[in-house]
């Protein structure tokens, strides 16, 4: 995979965020370029969600800088949100609304013209193979189907930057493969994608990965390069070694 060049679409520099006595982010930094799929890999509590919230302008930072397409996600929030898609880690759609009603709500909130909405929603429903379930309530979907709907909602407005927080968590292997295939398709369309995951084995599906631990990156690079550099056979092995080094 050719490393795409150009300015980063998504950039975090030395992010610091504390919650009381816990330091959730302790200097984390990363950059994602257009057409790149970046994997933020790390165990529970590593600070993945906090970093993503900071990038999306949902929380304040105690230190460091977040940039989306060169804009400040808090001060220039509205401009950022027109061009950013986010899929939160937990359930975040209206459970008592159907698949189609959820899509329609977000379509309206993004002010999509009727024709554009119809065309895009049809295409997304097809891509995610949710079309037969358009009238099903969101809370009656399986884990994998729900994640695909959330992805569809985040993609309706054709964002240039897409952030997904643990999209494959609680999803069966078949749906997981499907989701990754979808993501690769979008990336090849030039989108910058940041994805967080606790699964080490998913690291190799990314263009680049950052190993997150205790609010910092322990290592970063193209997956195969990282393995080759460290001499580890798997990412799990590599991760354990890095954590031991970090103390």
């Amino acid at each position: 995979m050719a490393a795409p060049g150009g300015e980063p679409a998504l950039e975090a520099r030395g992010l610091v965020r504390r919650f009381g006595a816990t330091t959730a982010l302790d200097g984390l930094g990363l950059a994602v370029r257009p057409g790149e799929l970046y994997g933020l890999v790390g165990p529970d509590g590593a600070g993945k969600t906090t970093a993503i919230r900071a990038l999306a302008g949902l929380i304040d930072l105690d230190g460091g800088e977040a940039r989306v397409l060169g804009l400040d996600p808090i001060r220039e929030g509205r401009a950022v949100r027109e061009r950013l898609g986010l899929m939160p880690q937990q359930f975040s759609l209206y459970r008592d609304l159907s698949v189609m009603e959820n899509l329609r709500f977000f379509g309206r909130v993004y002010c999509l013209p009727r024709a554009a909405f119809r065309e895009r929603s049809e295409r997304l429903l097809q891509l995610t193979r949710l079309a037969p379930f358009a009238d099903r309530r969101a809370d009656a979907l399986s884990g994998g189907m729900y994640k695909k709907l959330a992805l569809a909602c985040a993609l309706l407005h054709r964002p240039e930057v897409l952030i997904l927080d643990e999209p494959t968590n609680g999803v069966d292997p078949v749906s997981r493969r499907e989701l990754w295939a979808l993501l690769h398709e979008f990336v090849h369309g030039g989108m910058a994608v940041l994805i967080s995951t606790p699964y080490m084995d998913e690291a190799e599906r990314c263009d680049r990965v950052g190993l997150a631990h205790r609010g910092r990156l322990l290592d970063e690079g193209a997956p195969l390069e990282l393995l080759a550099r460290s001499g580890a056979a798997t990412f799990e092995e590599l991760f354990v070694a890095r954590i031991r080094e970090a103390g």
Binding site: L86, Y94, V109
Partner: peptide
């Protein structure tokens, strides 16, 4: 229900 977070990343 987490929906506030989803709505707050839209331009509304």
């Amino acid at each position: 229900m987490g929906t506030l977070e989803q709505v707050m990343v839209t331009p509304i």
